[in-house]
Design a protein around this nucleic acid. Sequence first.
DNA 1: CCTGGAGTTGTCCTA
DNA 2: TTAGGACAACTCCAG
Length: 465
Amino acid sequence: MSDNPALHAAASAGQPVFPLYILDDADAGEWAMGQASHVWLHQSLSALNKDLGSRMCFFKGRAEKIIPKLAASINACGVYWNRCYEPWRIARDTRIKAHLKESKCRVRTFNGSLLFEPQDVLKSDGSPYKVFTPFYRNGCLTNAPLPRVPLQKPQLSDLYSANEGCTLAGLGLMPRLRWSKCIAEQWEVGETAAQRRLQGFLQTGACHYKEGRDRPDQNYVSRLSPHLHFGEISPQQVWHAARKIVVKDNSIGELEHFLRELCWREFSYSLLYHWPHIPRENMQRKFDRFPWREDRLALQQWQSGQTGIPIVDAGMRELWQTGYMHNRVRMITASFLVKNLLLHWHHGEDWFWDTLVDADLANNSASWQWVAGCGADAAPYFRIFNPVTQGKRFDPNGAYVRRYVPEVARLPDKFVHCPWEAPDEILKSAGIALGTQYPKPMVDLKESRLRALAAVKTLGSLPTD
DNA sequence: CCTGGAGTTGTCCTA
DNA sequence: TTAGGACAACTCCAG
């Protein structure tokens, strides 16, 4: 409710406000919201509705049908919303706008979810950035206007009452799966919870962020991504709260890295806006001939956390159990799928889309392209993560792996990331039977690394776009 | 137009 | 044990 520019403007218009949520995935195609998103959205709407005195109205269906009809039937003098950036939503909202304007209804849209809107961060020749660092340094920090100061929670004394639409339950967002209940229990959802998390992060995690953000075994990341995605907190609120700490404690070093991460989100949105096909098409077209393998079983092993590589399995199980995965581990698991298993990044993208509570088209697409190496400013191809090295470096005591892969929990630190290297008697005393109760590694890491290097070599280096 | 420097996130081998 | 270089060659971007 706070820093929500559309709501703020509606409340300032001097008329009763009719708060509306429409679940509309009609044009989303394969990017209709995933299961984990549904779970979060349900909780989030529930919290918001509570804050609004249970006066929200819910609809399911095509917004471009519902909004004009509703606006006419209640004789609305204005319609307000915060802009979305998914290609089909841009198209839909443009149609709604045109339709409403025809009927003389006032329409105003706002930036409610980005620090910098994609059309505002461009190179001096007017074209969009493809590389993060200049986007960040020159585009965001130097040339773009400063992120606006967050708006206060509006006075909503006069809410319009109408018996329209359906109940929240009527949206059908909570399937009666045990899984969705489990996910819901992991999180506190809603604006208040988001603010609490931000404050908690700024007080504890932020001062160790530079190094701490890479440690899945510790609690140094903000975990704000789902709150940001669903608009429970705005990046402006996060940005200004962090800047305040920077000024107060003179600690630009650690927080600088956090602000950078916020701008990575902006960069993803910019890429999606200017290259709307990135959810499916390689930005570097030469990757269209990449020799991906087809292997359903291998994909299932990856999805279910049964690869035999503890850090990969821990990540995939964390995802399944909590709807979230630590960022460092996202990179490791993604790299493993794409490089070691040579499975198409679309498979990983689809799985993350369905299981992450922070599933976000811009971030998901841009990040998978980056990992796969087909993105705009992709890493050099020879950067292939070794999951064992990564595990030892970023989960040095194996606490993370032990939490999610109890099969290896009793191994000494030295072997917890590579149980297949442990001598038989150590395996035995740790109660592990490799190949039965915990799998042997599904690929040889060294071999599969060489195979990935060879695969990229086949692309040659000539045509890039 | 040309030019030079730089580019999220690494790994492996060698001295 | 640790530090440094190789791993290629490309595109992007600012001046």
